[in-house]
Computed example of a mutant assay.
Amino acid sequence: MSVVVCLDKFRGSATAAQACAWLAAGIRAAGPGVPVVERPLADGGEGTVEALAAAGYSLVRADVMGPVAGMTVSAAIAVRGSRAVVELAQASGLALIPGGAPLTATTYGTGQLVRAALDLGCTQIVLAVGGSATTDGGAGLLTALGASVRDASGAPLPPGGGHLADAASLDLSGLDPRVPSVDVVLASDVDNPLLGPDGAARVFGPQKGAGPAQIERLEAGLARFADLMTARTGKDHTATPGAGAAGGTGFAALAALAARPQQGSAFMLDELDLPGLLRGAALCVVGEGRFDGQSLRGKAPCAAASLASRAHVPVTLVAGEIALPEPDLASLGITAAHSLLDVAETPRAAFERTEALLHAIGERIGSDLTR
């Protein structure tokens, strides 16, 4: 009767793999002989490739453009068989430029990773698009794959969503000829459209450092890019759920790459074989840095809790901070909850002593199990 530990990252203090390892060590210390299985979680954002590597995928590295022109990053693709998982955050993530660059951030590096996956001969490419720094509508990604976006003078448009309002033409004829024969999956838990009050610029722009005037500029640019794309493809994907993912990267994937959407957390839980691990498990421990209302919108720990509950496996929540009332936790099948803030001397200590605190909570869980 194993314990399945599946935690997402504790942002700023522990990766998902570290959090799982520290908690599992505490469980093992207090419950010798209790089988503990560690499965770091991610839902398509930062940490997706790392989680897949822990589940048996191989990593292939490539040097690509970072979120801003002139920046080079070493990014990894997760590969298993003919499938490649491209994590946008590896190349175009906000964590790479914490201050943000709302008008100039580009997905060009993500497109380079897609091309690298094609060079490996992969026939399915999963675009995991959480955690982006970008609001360029996926124009950078398409440019890296051979498309061109030009202004009225015929000059290539500079990178970034801040320039899209100046776009006069979009040419997709130069797209890598291998793209149509590849199954492209858009893995995202965001169902926002591209434009409007629930769209990419207005909802996610502030998180990426955009002020009110910049948000309106980005909105106008996305609208212009969408007009060109719709005229070019004959299909309007602006209102398609998920088009607003990763600053509109979802839109480019749907419209130009014929991507099919799939919930990111569901894809990850299947790839991590969580349904199989839960068969016969005594306990499932889920969690992340902050468990709040956003967690209820399909994030991986919440999805894992629901999956365990449906399998009649008790669920324990471990988080840095828990900002949901007990009824909401109970609706997910969570029967016990531990917050680092409840056991830390101060909020600062919860960040600085994450390893020790997770180990201590793990010991408490292990002791409860052995009793």
Rank of each mutant, 00 (worst) to 15 (best):
G366M: 03
L228W: 12
P212E: 15
L296C: 08
V3M: 10
V114H: 08
D198M: 13
A311F: 01
A258K: 14
P32V: 06
H359T: 00
G248H: 03
G289T: 00
A84C: 08
L145I: 07
P35Q: 04
A226F: 03
V34C: 15
H163S: 13
G100Q: 11
A69W: 12
V86G: 09
S169W: 11
A69Y: 09
L254K: 05
L141C: 15
T249M: 14
Q294L: 11
G121N: 08
A220M: 08
R290E: 02
I27H: 06
A144V: 12
L118C: 05
K208Q: 04
A336V: 00
P102V: 14
T316Y: 03
T107Q: 11
D151F: 14
G280Y: 13
G100I: 07
R80L: 08
Y108P: 11
V343L: 02
R279N: 11
R115Y: 02
T230G: 08
F204W: 02
A246T: 03
T335R: 06
G31M: 08
D166Q: 14
L272M: 06
D8L: 07
S173A: 15
K235A: 15
D292C: 05
C122G: 02
L254T: 05
A258S: 15
D8C: 04
H312C: 08
P156S: 09
G250D: 06
H237K: 07
G109K: 07
G244T: 14
S339L: 02
T104P: 01
H312F: 08
L329C: 01
P32A: 13
Y57F: 15
V203A: 01
L358H: 00
F225N: 09
R39M: 09
